[in-house]
Design a protein around this nucleic acid. Structure first.
Lengths: 208, 208
DNA sequence: TAGATTGTTAATCGATTAACAATC
DNA sequence: TAGATTGTTAATCGATTAACAATC
């Protein structure tokens, strides 16, 4: 239903509102958020009305009200447990990432085929892959992060889906093949950097 | 000119084609790439014709031809030097990332305010920030990666732009404010994960 | 009240798709 | 040749914007 562009915008609004709140503001007008985020005021109002964020005809929106609704929309009021597969460079960085907690996301467990990594001390337990199905079903986990090498990404993906995972954040440079009801987001840092390099040069006087 | 969606698709095609090539294929039809990537055959043909990738009316496209054109389009025939600011979790992961080299991207230098990190051994030299303007102008670097904490991200961003950077890959959870001719890509791992969690639950029978 | 902002409807725009002539 | 695929034009669709009535 909700397009991925829509959810992206919501999180962009959220970030700007947190910033404005830190600056001491309590209320905002759509055109102020527009200035901060680059999206048009009309689009912002439309997005807000879509998730029942209401303003006052003359007084704008209250920042806390918007933040609350957005956080609710994303289910941040409960703890969201996810699993992480692959403890290489990226996996380790994610395991050490602190922002998750603030947003009620918890990397419940990590998995790696390398026993050495399993023995190392992270704040998150690292198991071998055979512990994965048990943990996923026991904790009813529905989201996984794939941070394994390209070669094993599809196979890990297939396994996760078999174990009941419904959403995947994939860092491996592979177009994962998944059934239609599985949501995948591919986050290739390398490709993203190539795009930045390209657009930096191509866009002499044009923004995003 | 080229929308960011367009460049995203090109890199998606590329990934699938590399995969198909590894499987032993030499030629492809638009509908095969469609199957692999999920984009329609018509859109693929239109994208290809836009960057002058030509096929044979009956025989499809040659994989090597497409790959060559795409790599050329992104300037992969030359080495692309970029700078990295911030050697925390993410910065370190990026510094250790090996895929860049394959695609002719080189993290020429990294910067961090912490002298301890500057002394540690990475394959990339780590300097204090005051070395930044010199290196950027000397190597004519136009792209930078920001991997510093949220609080300092805008200030680092302003500095990079002042030094001549035109494109920024930003990992900090901040909506950077930049002049119109600067290209910014925000890659918030945490927000991306939240979106995956959301869409995994929302999308019972619907894909991307 | 006058002025400004929301919330929503209608208009616009651009991107994607459908369709098909060209052609190998 | 018959059949299949490209390349491109016209049609469609959906997302964004413009506009404005409602209202504080």
């Amino acid at each position: 239903m909700a397009s991925t562009e829509f959810t992206k915008r919501l999180l962009t609004y959220r970030l700007s509102l947190l910033h404005l709140k830190k600056m001491g503001l309590k209320d905002v007008y759509s055109h102020l958020i527009s200035e901060e985020t680059g999206f048009s005021a009309a689009l912002i109002r439309k997005d807000f009305s879509r998730i029942a964020i209401q303003g006052k005809r003359r007084g704008g929106y209250t920042i806390d009200g918007i933040l609350d609704t957005i956080d609710n929309y994303f289910g941040d009021k409960n703890i969201n447990e996810v699993v992480l597969v692959g403890m290489g460079n990226i996996g380790k960085a994610i395991a050490r990432y602190k922002d998750f907690e603030k947003q009620n996301i918890c990397i419940f467990a990590a998995f790696d085929i390398d026993p050495v990594k399993q023995r190392k001390k992270f704040s998150i337990p690292v198991y071998s892959m055979d512990k994965c199905p048990g943990i996923i079903s026991e904790r009813k986990i529905d989201t996984g992060i794939i941070a394994v090498p390209a070669l094993s990404a599809q196979s890990v993906c297939d396994q996760l889906i078999q174990y009941g995972i419904k959403g995947i954040l994939n860092f491996a440079p592979v177009n994962l093949k998944v059934p239609g009801h599985i949501f995948v987001s591919n986050l290739s840092i390398c490709d993203e950097l190539r795009r930045v390099i390209y657009h930096a040069r191509e866009n002499p006087y044009e923004s995003k």
